[in-house]
């Protein structure tokens, strides 16, 4: 049950982004989660209202995209989508594979509402 801890870490990052953009509030938060990240999207969604209460993101929508588990085979050089409990190459069956995707817990994008745009903010955005 470490999803609350993960969610609190997420909130720290979201609040930083909101501050950098001088945002009035956060509209949506987009995450990419792989099944091998150890984070359960359902539990993360449940923890979100608790972690975000009273913050700029209290009313934000949490959008979680589940990422596929993809391995690259070092034996036959093929790439295949596999089950999280069986990371064998789908083509030749070898276990000598490298995970290409599936262990991510990524904050991809934050959508914020800015009351007013200023040149200083625009600079911050483009250089960040």
């Amino acid at each position: 049950m470490h999803e609350l801890a993960v969610c609190q870490a997420l909130m720290d990052q979201v609040e930083n982004v909101a501050r950098e953009q001088s945002a009035a509030h956060v509209v949506s938060i987009h995450l990419g989660i792989g099944p091998l990240s150890g984070v359960e999207p359902g539990l993360l969604s449940q923890a979100f209202p608790i972690a975000s209460a009273g913050s700029l993101a209290a009313d934000a929508e949490l959008v979680i995209t589940s990422l596929p588990v993809v391995v690259h085979c070092r034996e036959c050089d093929c790439q295949s989508e596999v089950q999280p409990t069986r990371l064998l190459c789908s083509h030749c069956g070898a276990w000598q594979t490298t995970l290409v995707s599936g262990d991510e817990m990524l904050l991809e994008r934050v959508e914020v509402i800015c009351e007013k745009s200023t040149p200083a903010q625009a600079r911050g955005v483009l250089h960040s």
């Binding site: 953009q21 009035a24 817990m105 990524l106 904050l107 994008r109 959508e111 745009s117 960040s128």
Partner: peptide
């Protein structure tokens, strides 16, 4: 990034999408 739909695009209603691409446990 600043074209409509881009990560830094700002719409008339002040909505702005900021691309982060960071691990949640970055800290």
């Amino acid at each position: 990034l600043v074209k409509p739909g881009g990560a830094l695009h700002r719409t008339d209603d002040g909505r702005e999408a900021v691309s982060v691409l960071r691990n949640l446990l970055h800290e």
